[in-house]
Design a protein around this nucleic acid. Structure first.
Length: 843
RNA sequence: GCCGGGGUGGCGAAACUGGUUAGACGCGAGGGACUUAAAAUCCCUUGGGUGAAAGCCCAUCCGAGUUCGACUCUCGGCCCCGGCACCA
C-alpha cells in the first residue's frame, strides 16, 4: 500500500498512484470523445437546455484567459444543468470574419483564408484541453460559405421588408481601417477596433432600419432576465426622450424687415418657412429667446440674411472641417447670427435665429429653441453673445423676478412663471398642458425621440460576406435570388483596403460583372461586405440545426428551433451590451415578424461576467502580463486552472489573477483525491461530518445557479477540512457525494474518481445526477444563540433547537460571562428564534 | 455632468431578506510535528491597540442619522471601475 501522505506529483516508487493531472485529463478527453459524451440528442433529448457562451474571434495569439474565464463559468453552469437531468447543449463556434483577422493577415503577409483554419485548429485544441463540455459536432465558422450563405439570407429578409436601405449620409470613417463604422463601433470619437480618430465622410452606405424597433427594443428589456448593467447600457443607448416638436415661423428678412412689431399667434400658413425644433421642455416655450440651427441644417441657405451670408458660410465650412472629437469635446460655445428671425408661437415675439455647432444635425431635428434661463448650454451661449435670458420656472423660495445667475434646472417643487395662463403649473403638469395648447395652435405636437441611429452595415473591406445585391442601371438595387446564395467571397490576393471608400472587391471585374437577375442586362455586384456584427447577430439560431437534414437548404430547422430556442442561458462580456446583444435582439425581432421564428427575444437569461485582471492591473501585451492558459494547464492541469479561475472572485465581478493562489486549489483537489483513495468502506460515516456534507450539498446547489462559484468552492474546501480534520480517515459515504459536487468545476478528476478503482461506478458522473440533501440532517438538534447586552454581543449560549425566549434567557443568566453585564432587570428583550437574544438594561 | 457597479486584514475575497463577539475559504507570514535533511503532509497562530493573563477598547472609505442591533437602511461628502455625454 501507498502511505496516505504519498505526495501526488513525484513518481512514487511503486505502484504509481498519485494524482497526475496530465494522465487523468488526457484519458478523459479521449474517452469523452470516443463516447460522444458532449453531444446531446438534439431531436430526442428530454428537458433541453441551451447554455450559450459568446463565441470568440480566433486570433493568432490563441485563447485569452478572459475567454476561458467566461467559458469555464458557462461550462460549470451547463454541467450543473446536466446533473440536474437536463439534456444540455453547449456549442462553440468561431467569429472569424472582420477587420481584426484581415489586419492581422495583412501584417504577417498572409491570406486570411489560409490563416483562419490554423487559428481555429489551435483554439479547438485549447478549448478541448480546458475540459469544456462542447458539442464539437455542431459548430459554426462564420467565414465558411455554408454559414455566410445564411448571413446573406438574413440580409435579404431585411431587404424584402424594407429594413435594409442605401443612403448617402455622413458616416464614421476610420482612416486606419479604411472603412466606415457603425455608431456603436465608435467610442468617444475613436475606432473601437484600432483606436484611430474617426472622421466624417459622406458616402453611400447600407443601413438597417433598427430605429423602427427602438420602442420595442426598449420595452422588451423589462421582461428579460438580464444583468442590470447590460439592460441599463441598452436603455441608455436607445435613449428614449419624450418631448415635442415645435414649429417656429421664419420671418422673411426682406418682406418682414422693419416690421418688428408683427405679432403672429395665429396658425402658421402653409408654404411659409419654419424652423422645427425638438425639445423635452415644451413647458419652457415662453422663455425661448432665440433659435439655433446645426451648421449642417439645410434651411440655413434659405434664411441667412444678405449681410450675414458670408459669416454663416465661413462658420459652416469651419465646423465641417473640424473632426468629430474636437467638435464634441471642445465645449467652448461658438456660433453666428443668421440675420433671420423666427416667431415664438407662445409669446408672438420675434427671436433671432443663430447657427452653432453645439446643436447636432443627427439628433432630433437639428434645431433647438434656446431657453437660456433653464438650460446650461443655452445660458452659456446667451451670456457669451448677449442674448436675452428669461426666467419661466421658479423653484421653492423663488419668484418670477428672482435673478438668474446661472441656468435654473432643478424641477423639484418648481412652478412656471412669466408664462401667462400657465403660471403656477408644476413643471411635470405643464409639459402636457403646454404641448396640447401648442397643438391647438398648430404650432407643434408631442413626439418621442430616440438616440439610437440606424445600423450602418456595409464595410469597404474584403474579409466579410459580400452583400447579396446586384446593381442594375435599369432595375436598381436587385437582391440576389435566394437560390443563388451564397455569393462566394472570391479568393483574391490583393485584398488590401485603400482610402477611396470603395471595397477591394471592386478591383475585380471578373467577379462583380454579372447579369441582372431581373432583366438579364449587364449589371454589377455590390462590392461592399457586411459588418461582422451581422455574422454574430444570428449564429445562436444556427447551432442546433448544424448537421440536420435541412442544414443545406435553410438557416435553421423549424422543429429543432422550436425545441431549443430561445437560448436558456447566455454568458458573455458586457463590452457587447450595445453591439452584439442589441443587434441580435433586433434581428430576432425582424425574423419573428417575418414569420421565421415564434419568439422575438433570443436570450431569456443573460449574465455579464466580470473582467479578470492580473496582480491588480489590466492584462495587456505591452505590459507583458498576459496569462497564457496553455502554460498553466500544462503545469497545473485544467481542473486546477478552471477551479482557480472561478475561485478568484465573484464570477459577475471578475477577479485578480495571482500566480501564488493557484497552489491552494491544487491542494484542495489533491485532498479530494487522497480522501477517495483512503476512504474506508467498512466504517460508518460520522454524523457530524454527514451533517456538514448535507449543508455543503445545499450550499453548492444554491450557489451554482447564482453563479456564486467562489463561495461554492469555499464551501467544498470547508467540507474537506472537516472530513479530514487531523489524520482522520474519511468514509466512502462521506466522499462519494463530494465527487459529484466538484464535478462541474473539475470534470476530469471527478470522472476519474467516480469511475476509478475506488468508487468503481460504471456510468459517467455526469449521468449520476445531483446529490440530494436531507433537510432533517442539516441541524444537530442544538443551536448556538448570541446574547447581546445593550447592543454588544457578550457571549453565546447553546440551547436545544426550538428553545423559547425564557429558556434562552435562563441559559444566558446562567453564564457568568454574560450575566455580569446584566446589572439590572432588562427593560427590553428582543428575541430572534435560533439566532439571538438582545437585552437592554439600565446603565 | 448623468446612469450602473464598487470601496472590508499583508493579499484575493466572505457575510442569508438589518441578527450567532466582522473577516468564511484561499494565498502569504510565523511557530510546531514527521524527516538525517529538504519537499510534501498534518497541527497551531495570524485585523489593530492594551494587558502577565482573564479581559477590555477600537475597527468594514469619511461624517451624521434610524435601530435593541448597521458591512447591510437613510442623508451628506471623498475615491475607484464601467457605460453615456454639447442628445436639447
Amino acid at each position: 500500500m501507498t502511505p496516505p501522505n504519498q505526495l501526488p506529483h513525484e513518481p512514487a516508487p511503486e505502484p504509481p498512484i498519485g494524482y497526475d493531472p496530465a494522465r487523468v485529463e488526457r484519458k478523459w478527453r479521449e474517452r469523452w470523445a470516443q463516447r460522444s459524451a458532449n453531444t446531446p440528442d438534439i431531436a430526442g433529448g428530454v428537458r433541453p437546455y441551451y447554455a450559450l457562451m459568446m463565441f470568440p474571434y480566433p486570433s493568432a495569439e490563441g485563447l485569452h484567459v478572459g475567454n476561458l474565464f467566461a467559458f469555464t463559468g458557462n461550462d460549470i453552469f451547463a454541467r450543473f444543468q446536466r446533473l440536474q437531468g437536463h439534456t444540455v447543449f453547449e456549442p462553440m463556434g468561431f467569429d472569424a470574419f472582420g477587420i481584426h483577422s484581415e489586419n492581422y493577415a495583412l501584417k504577417v503577409g498572409a491570406h486570411p483564408m489560409d490563416l483562419i483554419p490554423k487559428n481555429v485548429a489551435n483554439f479547438t485544441r485549447q478549448l478541448t484541453a480546458a475540459g469544456l463540455m462542447i458539442d464539437w459536432t455542431r459548430t459554426v465558422d462564420t467565414t465558411h460559405p455554408s454559414y455566410y450563405a445564411w448571413t446573406q439570407w438574413v440580409f435579404l429578409q431585411l431587404f424584402k421588408r424594407g429594413l435594409a436601405y442605401r443612403k448617402k449620409a455622413a458616416v464614421n470613417w476610420c482612416p486606419n481601417d479604411k472603412t466606415v463604422l457603425a455608431n456603436e463601433q465608435v467610442e468617444g470619437g475613436k475606432c473601437e477596433r484600432c483606436g484611430a480618430t474617426v472622421e466624417q465622410r459622406a458616402l453611400e452606405q447600407w443601413f438597417f432600419r433598427i430605429t423602427d424597433y427602438a420602442e420595442r427594443l426598449l420595452k422588451n428589456l423589462d421582461g428579460l432576465d438580464w444583468s442590470t448593467t447590460t439592460k441599463t447600457a441598452q436603455r441608455t443607448w436607445i435613449g428614449r426622450s419624450d418631448g415635442a416638436e415645435l414649429r417656429f415661423r421664419v420671418l422673411n428678412p426682406m418682406e418682414d424687415a422693419g416690421s418688428a412689431a408683427v405679432h403672429v399667434t395665429s396658425e402658421v400658413a402653409t408654404g411659409m418657412r419654419e424652423v422645427v425644433v425638438f425639445t423635452t421642455r415644451p413647458d419652457t416655450i415662453f422663455g425661448a429667446t432665440y433659435l439655433v440651427l446645426a451648421p449642417e441644417h439645410p434651411l440655413l441657405d434659405d434664411i441667412a440674411g444678405v449681410d450675414q451670408k458670408r459669416a454663416v458660410d465661413e462658420y459652416r465650412t469651419r465646423s465641417s472641417r473640424q473632426d468629430l472629437i474636437s467638435r464634441k469635446t471642445n465645449k467652448e460655445k461658438t456660433g453666428v447670427f443668421t440675420g433671420a428671425y423666427g416667431v415664438n408661437p407662445a409669446t408672438g415675439e420675434m427671436i433671432p435665429i443663430w447657427t452653432a455647432d453645439y446643436v447636432l444635425m443627427e439628433y432630433g431635428t437639428g434645431a433647438i429653441m434656446a431657453v437660456p434661463g433653464h438650460d446650461e448650454r443655452d445660458f452659456e451661449f446667451a451670456t457669451k453673445f448677449g442674448l436675452p435670458i428669461e426666467r419661466v420656472v421658479a423653484g421653492p423660495g423663488q419668484t418670477a423676478r428672482t435673478p438668474l445667475k446661472e441656468a435654473f434646472v432643478d424641477d423639484a417643487g418648481a412652478v412656471l412663471c412669466n408664462s401667462e395662463q400657465f403660471d403656477g403649473y408644476a413643471v411635470e403638469e405643464a409639459k402636457p398642458a403646454v404641448t396640447a395648447w401648442l397643438e391647438e395652435k398648430h404650432a407643434g405636437k408631442g413626439v418621442v425621440n430616440f438616440r439610437l441611429h440606424d445600423w450602418c452595415i456595409s464595410r469597404q473591406r474584403y474579409w466579410g460576406p459580400p452583400i447579396p445585391i446586384i446593381h442594375c442601371d435599369a432595375c436598381g438595387a436587385v437582391p440576389v435570388p435566394e437560390k443563388d446564395l451564397p455569393v462566394i467571397l472570391p479568393n483574391i490576393p490583393d485584398f488590401k483596403p485603400d482610402d477611396s471608400g470603395i471595397s477591394p472587391l471592386a478591383r475585380h471585374e471578373e467577379w462583380y460583372r454579372v447579369p441582372c437577375p431581373t432583366c438579364g442586362k449587364p449589371a454589377r455586384r455590390e462590392t461592399d461586405v457586411s459588418d461582422t456584427f451581422l455574422d454574430s447577430g444570428w449564429y445562436f439560431l444556427r447551432y442546433p440545426s448544424v448537421g440536420s437534414a435541412n442544414a443545406g437548404t435553410m438557416p435553421f430547422d423549424p422543429s429543432i428551433t422550436k425545441k431549443w430556442l430561445p437560448v436558456n442561458s447566455y454568458i458573455g462580456g458586457n463590452e457587447h451590451a450595445v453591439l452584439h446583444l442589441l443587434y441580435s435582439r433586433f434581428l430576432t425581432m425582424v425574423l419573428h415578424d417575418a414569420g421565421h421564428l415564434d419568439f422575438d427575444e433570443p436570450f431569456t437569461k443573460f449574465r455579464a461576467h466580470g473582467m479578470i485582471i492580473r496582480d491588480g492591473a489590466k492584462m495587456s501585451k505591452s505590459k507583458g502580463n498576459i496569462v497564457n492558459p496553455d502554460e498553466y494547464i500544462t503545469e497545473w492541469g485544467a481542473d486546477t486552472f478552471r477551479t482557480y479561475l472561478m475561485f478568484l472572485g465573484a464570477f459577475e465581478e471578475g477577479g485578480d489573477f495571482r500566480d501564488g493562489g493557484i497552489s491552494g486549489v491544487k491542494r484542495f483537489l489533491d485532498r479530494i483525491w487522497a480522501s477517495v483513495r483512503d476512504a474506508s468502506v467498512a466504517d460508518d460515516p460520522d454524523p457530524e461530518v454527514m451533517r456538514k456534507l448535507h449543508q455543503t450539498i445545499k450550499k453548492v446547489g444554491e450557489d451554482i445557479p447564482m453563479l456564486s462559484y467562489n463561495t461554492a468552492i469555499a464551501a467544498m474546501m470547508e467540507y474537506v477540512n472537516v472530513m479530514r480534520r487531523g489524520e482522520r480517515t474519511p468514509r466512502r459515504a462521506e466522499v462519494e457525494p463530494l465527487v459529484q459536487l466538484v464535478a462541474p468545476f473539475a470534470p476530469h478528476i471527478a470522472e476519474e474518481l467516480w469511475q476509478g478503482e475506488w468508487l468503481n461506478h460504471t456510468e459517467s458522473v455526469f449521468d449520476a445526477g445531483w446529490p440530494v440533501f436531507d433537510p432533517k440532517r442539516l441541524a444537530s438538534g442544538s443551536v448556538t444563540i448570541a446574547v447581546q447586552v445593550n447592543g454588544k454581543t457578550r457571549g453565546t449560549v447553546v440551547v436545544s433547537e426550538g428553545a423559547d425566549e425564557a429558556a434562552v434567557y435562563a441559559a444566558a443568566m446562567a453564564d457568568a460571562g454574560i450575566a455580569k453585564f446584566v446589572t439590572s432587570e432588562p427593560k427590553k428583550r428582543v428575541f430572534v428564534a435560533g439566532r439571538l437574544l438582545s437585552l437592554v438594561v439600565q446603565v
